[in-house]
Nucleic acid binder design. Sequence first.
RNA 1: GGGCCUGUAGCUCAAUGGUUAGAGCAGGGCGCUCAUAACGCCUUGGUUGGGGGUUCGAGUCCCUCCGGGCCUACCA
Length: 570
Amino acid sequence: MARHLITSAIPYINGIKHLGNLVGSQLPADLFARYLRGRGHEVMFLCATDEHGTPAELAAAKAGKPVAEYCAEMHAVQAKLADGFRLSFDHFGRSSSEQNRRLTQAFAKALDEAGLIREVSETQMYSPTDGRYLPDRYIEGTCPNCGFDSARGDQCDNCTKQLDPVDLINPRSVISGATDLQMRDTKHLYLRQSALKDELEQWIDTREGWPVLTTSIAKKWLNDGDGLQDRGITRDLDWGVPVQRGDEPWPGMEGKVFYVWFDAPIEYIACAQEWVDAGKGTDWERWWRTDKGAGDVTYTQFMGKDNVPFHTLSFPVTILGSGEPWKLVDYIKSFNYLNYDGGQFSTSRGRGVFMDQALDILPSDYWRWWLLSHAPESSDAEFTWENFQASVNKDLADVLGNFVSRVTKFCRSKFGEVVPEGGAYGAKEEAVIAELGARLKTYEAHMDAIEVRKAAAELRAIWVAGNEYLQDAAPWSVFKEDEAAAAAIIRFSLNLIRLYAVLSEPFIPDASDTLKAAMKVTDAGWPDDIGGALSALPAGHGFEVPENLFRKIADEEREDWQARFAGVRD
RNA sequence: GGGCCUGUAGCUCAAUGGUUAGAGCAGGGCGCUCAUAACGCCUUGGUUGGGGGUUCGAGUCCCUCCGGGCCUACCA
């Protein structure tokens, strides 16, 4: 038994996440957590909402609510949806927590004492109308290069030229449209990432088997241009972790907060403290402090590719730079993007299917199966309704669901709702045991390596093996000649259902529960011996014929959904 | 502009430089009748985006061209 710490990139607070967000971090992280728990390992699976920053303030303003209230409400909404998708977090925390505030300030102090923080004076665009400093992206104007009139402060979307806000002609606030923008001098703290460049590079070079996506992005940032740049870790905002040096004020930094990307990953740690403070556990340090028991922990992070630089560089700088024995990540699993029907999912434009809408249409297992079996691992992937319909109908309804139906209903009609007695396993059963033994090894290998799509394909092959066996054994024919022989076939098949419930749990936990309940199984552990696992249900053990596990998606429904989600949500 | 990823059957994807490039779905045929018009077996289908090169051997490595995508540090 090993100990595994797993974190999912923490979703931003400003609205309900879409299926692309879900499949890029939380869902595969949950798959892995469930799998490792199933194998009997000790798992700590943490996630939280990322609540600070300008977009949160603006979303709150738009909703007409104080930002703290808005965040509390949205956290509750996201927690409910996470529950709806059966995301099995040990704790779903908040980056705005007291625990994170203290820890973020403590890290800043440690980094400062290590000489890794420097003050920088700079000029920033201020909007008196909005009463706030504007990030470059929140300034628009005419591009000095091509004349495009909606160029953003950081880049022109028309000619792609990199810009500085001061370059824009007739700059205006994206928020209010105000044009009375002023350049103001302001002081900020920078994290001296450049000082740790060599240490970081050495660390990344010694990581084995990381996805190309992860290391290539990290390498690019380390070596591009002048190499890894120092990064501003403070902002002129109201909403965030106040800049302090531990418990002490930080002279000159009054009224400023830490940049959201500084405090967000620290929430991974603070979340474990929240877990303790919520009464769910007693010792968080054994997960996070290598001097206090975390030395044997394997830490795996899940995220979309846009998050990679922060997890391979900024956060490790925070950890390493502190000089304190915090647990550093062992494996980073990153994902490409899921596109929607020929374009991108978009939170800001409301394009695609969002978590709440998805659950309104179908239960979570349908989505979990499709998303995980099509996870964008090697390249961007695409969601289409046709593909979704075809996969769900074939894989879940026909291959797995129908297998359960044919076995349980045949048994009920011939032997009653009880595992039948008589006969014995023979060559056909031994062959299935051998095949499933090999397939289980493959399935485990893919899961251990977090090869999500390959694991899904192998699980499906394990389901298919049941139908092949049943067709070959043909109990409906055998029954006419030899009831005892038919009983053995059905006994074996009912045991296959129990096995499928166990192996499928990481992907489709609800169906797994339904099957376990139908088979009246309470102690189904991960099989280490297929032969034994397929004799677990003895003759005489009662069961119930479950409702159809999965229903099929009809063409009319699919067309209806296609039309309904073709535009943008309100 | 720069960097990275990607292009394989109608569709979604596999293939440590090494047999005749494989699966699933869709299509075609046969079988079965327990089951959600489900299942099983067989089968059609590929000049691996184009061109050039290295090699005994290239989907895989190199060059080049074409297409798709992401990132490029103050959105997060």
